[in-house]
Amino acid sequence: MNQYILAIDGGATKTTLSLRDASGKVYFEKTSTSTNYQAIGAEKVEKVLTNLLNEAYKATGILDIAVATFAIAGVDTQNGLAIVQQIIHRSCGNSPFSIRRTIVENDVQSTLIGLTGGKAGALLISGTGSAAYATDGQGRIERSGGWGHRVGDEGSGYWIGREILNTIFRSEDGRLEKPTVLTDLVYDMLQIDNIEQLNDWIYQPDYTNAQVANISKILTKAISLGDEQAIQIACNAAKELSIMTNAVLRKIEPIGEDFIVYLNGGILKHNPIILNVFKDYVKKIYPYISFHLCTQNPIDYIANRALSSLK
């Protein structure tokens, strides 16, 4: 009998569910909105997951699931894990699926396991949020960063977006020595005309972390125009990401020469200056490690995590 797995990649911006068999064949896959309960609340997360699960069943008619891996952003503490487990329990109860084993993990941890296949390695993600995880290949997993937008997420899309917005307000106040193109680029993106409208946008009732993270997309354009403030933000982001990575690598030393640091997330993929400066910083401490920029969709790594638990 064929075995089926569910892989759910629940991030701060979007959530993807994939239903596959043991050979990796995809039977259903769909992307919806965020399932980070810290950002949108437990009720909305439950609704998103319930809808995805029911759509997967209606599309496939498959009932028996061997393993379901829920890789969810915001699973950072035991209390957070308990909250997410309750949400998932209710969501699965609202669907027809019979799931024999359920794995609930932080999304970065699941991705790391899916990437390394149990071997030593590390993963840095910089998307809407940021975090670094590493494993020694002997079952030990350590982390650095990933403490959320209120106190952390350094070097992430949200962090960069917030830095850009802060720069615009500082420029408006006359607190910068030189003008910045960031103002015009953000105004154009948001289709607004002045600082008061920007302030209203920030404090709108429907404000989300993802909206601020989206602002980071203008950074590359600003850098190409030679904007000093944009270049400084990029370099600061790279430094913060390197500090996070070096910290987690220290926790699992010694590091072998074949050690790989996997890199994932839109910030690292679409900002060459951040990527290159980051590598330079890390290489100063760990000159022999190598880097691998992930090219597959994140859901594929989560699916690998689920499939590995079948073996």
Rank of each mutant, 00 (worst) to 15 (best):
S95V: 04
S98N: 12
N106W: 11
S126C: 02
L81V: 08
G80I: 10
L115C: 08
V84G: 01
N94E: 14
I88H: 02
V108T: 13
G117N: 09
I99D: 00
Q86G: 14
K119M: 12
V84T: 10
N106V: 06
A120V: 00
F97T: 00
H89P: 02
S110C: 11
F97I: 07
V84N: 07
L124R: 07
S126D: 02
I113A: 09
K119E: 12
I103P: 02
S98Q: 13
G118T: 10
L123S: 12
G114S: 02
L112Q: 04
R100D: 09
C92H: 01
P96Q: 08
R90N: 13
T111P: 03
V108D: 01
S95I: 04
D107V: 08
L124Q: 04
I88E: 03
N79T: 09
S98G: 02
G117E: 11
T116N: 07
N94K: 15
E105V: 07
S98A: 09
I83W: 04
T111A: 13
C92V: 07
V104K: 08
T111I: 12
I113L: 14
I103Q: 11
S98K: 14
Q86Y: 10
A82N: 11
R100M: 07
G80Q: 10
Q85G: 05
S110W: 06
N94S: 11
Q86W: 11
S110D: 05
R100F: 05
Q85E: 15
L124W: 06
V104W: 15
I88V: 15
T116G: 07
I99F: 04
